[in-house]
Computed example of a mutant assay.
Amino acid sequence: MSEKWIEVKVITSSSAIEPVSGIFYGLDVKGVAIEDPNDIYSRQQNALSWDFADVNIFEYGDRAAVVKAYFSQEDDIEKIVKYIEGKLKELKEMGIDVGDSKVITTAVYEENWAASWKKYYKTTRLGKRVVIKPVWEIYESEEDDVVVELDPGMAFGTGTHETTMMCVEFLEKYVKKGDVVFDIGTGSGILAITASKLGAERVEAVDLDEIAVRAAQENVAYNNLTNVVIKHGNLTEVIEGKGDIVVANIIADVIKVLAGNIKNYLKDDGLFIASGIIIDRKEDVVEALLKEKFVIHEVREMGEWVAIASKLH
């Protein structure tokens, strides 16, 4: 039988995605996934995932957003839900619009979860050359295509979200043959694999979520790569040396913390690519980077999201 997990999701507003994600991070759950109501693919995926709980997302309105994470059966789910509800109440008292702020728990079998959304996950071109291809699809590549074989499983990172799209575009633009690349919060491994296929000599990717680590390792194998290493842990615990590029597609608050440490892992003239930043938090992240002596090299916006490429002075 496939492995069973408990999915805990919060129905909220788009404007509250960041603080609600922070609640899950406070539980030391790093595999936080966001379903963005502005993303057509996410809407389709939502309609399926809600079937597990017999709930229709659209009854919450067009601006409803979902933030979710997965927990083991051994976790005290009742305690976790009470903690989340308490934190949502605190956010309301702070004047933050958290929307419906409904907390829903659902038992999810990996096998069932995967089967229900695969029909909507199709081969997608990102940037000019990178093609993200589900491992179960057939695709006839064009000249100069960089094809990434992917099965995200229950990990974040299909390539369809704006934050991932912008990171791939940055990697396509900046990765040079022979580069060393570090991927922080790798999720499905999509960015690590992309960096390798774009010419990086060595890629090290880390994630605190064991589900993501397993998915990323499987995806590296699907792509027959020997220069990509996936590690369980955080940046300071498992990465040594310095990279030409560090990419982190996480959330604004985590990136602000990383800004103080990331310089120790960047070579001279190295590039820090940060994404997962809701547009309302752009200035906060820029300010944190400038404080740590980074120079903003390029900023991209897509939908309600921002990606920033910066270099040290």
Rank of each mutant, 00 (worst) to 15 (best):
V67M: 06
L88H: 05
A69H: 15
I80L: 03
D76Y: 00
Q73R: 12
A69I: 04
Y70D: 15
Q45K: 13
E59V: 07
E74Q: 12
D75A: 04
S42V: 09
I96Y: 03
G95A: 01
N56Y: 08
N46V: 05
E93M: 00
A64M: 02
A47T: 14
G95E: 09
A65R: 08
W50G: 01
D54M: 15
Y60I: 07
A69P: 15
I84E: 01
E59A: 04
E78I: 11
G86P: 15
F71T: 11
A64L: 07
L48P: 10
A65I: 00
Q45Y: 14
V66H: 11
G95S: 02
K79P: 00
V66P: 09
W50F: 13
Y70N: 14
N56C: 10
D54K: 15
M94V: 02
S72R: 15
A64K: 13
Q73T: 13
V55G: 11
S49L: 15
A69W: 13
E93G: 01
K92G: 03
A53M: 11
E90V: 02
E74V: 12
E93W: 01
Y70W: 00
D54P: 05
A53H: 05
K68Y: 00
V81T: 06
E90L: 03
N46E: 13
A64S: 02
Y83S: 09
I96L: 02
M94P: 06
G86A: 02
E93P: 07
V66Y: 12
E85N: 03
D75Q: 04
I80K: 04
Y60N: 07
W50D: 08
K87C: 02
K82P: 11
E78L: 12
S72M: 09
S72E: 15
E90K: 06
Y41T: 03
A69C: 08
K82V: 09
V66F: 14
F71R: 04
